[in-house]
């Protein structure tokens, strides 16, 4: 299961939205397979009946009151945008 082939690299690169040129796929497949192979040692651990740990914090979520305390800062929101027009972010046209 740890064997990651070129097609898998291409698939996860696509899911990650990272353009990987064809000539890099092979090398990456080897590297990732190597790392995943090393990770496989986790299978030695018996984890039956163990609760997964998502966070070191074991309290419950704090709730905030329903108050408008933010927003109304369009300039701050848009100032770093590579392309902003008429108060919008602009991106290459999307066809639905």
């Amino acid at each position: 299961m740890s064997d990651i082939d070129k097609a898998t690299v291409a698939k996860i690169a696509r899911l990650s939205r990272i353009k990987i040129e064809e000539d890099r796929l092979e090398g990456l497949a080897g590297e990732l397979s190597n790392i995943m192979g090393w990770i496989e040692q986790l299978n030695e651990v018996d984890t039956d009946n163990i609760t997964p740990m998502a966070s070191p914090v074991d309290t419950k979520l704090r709730w905030r009151a329903d108050e408008v305390s933010d927003g109304d800062k369009r300039d701050a929101v848009l100032i770093n945008a590579p392309q902003g027009e008429y108060g919008f972010f602009a991106v290459p046209k999307v066809i639905e």
């Binding site: 408008v68 927003g71 109304d72 369009r74 929101v77």
Partner: peptide, 20 residues
């Protein structure tokens, strides 16, 4: 986030840095 939810506001005026 604490940004408002009202309908019909000017674009990107009800956006906090969290929402962005």
């Amino acid at each position: 986030s604490g940004a408002a939810t009202a309908f019909g506001a000017e674009p990107n005026t009800q956006v906090s840095l969290v929402d962005a």
